[in-house]
Amino acid sequence: MKSKIVVVGDAPLVMGFKLAGIDDTVQAGESTIQAELEKVLANKDYGIIVTNEYMLNRIDWRLRKKLDSIAYPVVIPMPDYTGKSTEGDEIRNLIKRALGFDLGAKKQEKS
């Protein structure tokens, strides 16, 4: 299945990815993100959706659940300019809960 990348997010994110050569961008604020994401989801051409993490945390839980459960398209939340990201922690917590060991701790031991 041939598909494209689409960026849905705030102005810096959209501008940045435009400079990286992504053509399909949708600028959205916190109030419009929900509608824009739904619009993008309906378009089957898009395979990867890049969006702001902090905005993704604001959307309706139903849409959030849908985003989490579908395999196509793939939604990638981006950290904001502070470089902080809860997404990585979330996955690490999940791993810790499911497998019983902390991946982050293991990596630090190695290095």
Partner: peptide, 28 residues
């Protein structure tokens, strides 16, 4: 330059992150 690198990372991340998340939930 920076955003080109970020784009490459995002694509790599798309490959792994969703799969990992889904798998780990199912494992649990």
């Amino acid at each position: 330059d920076d955003f080109n690198e970020i784009l490459a990372m995002v694509i790599k991340l798309a490959e792994t992150e969703t799969a990992m998340k889904r798998l780990i939930i199912e494992i649990e």
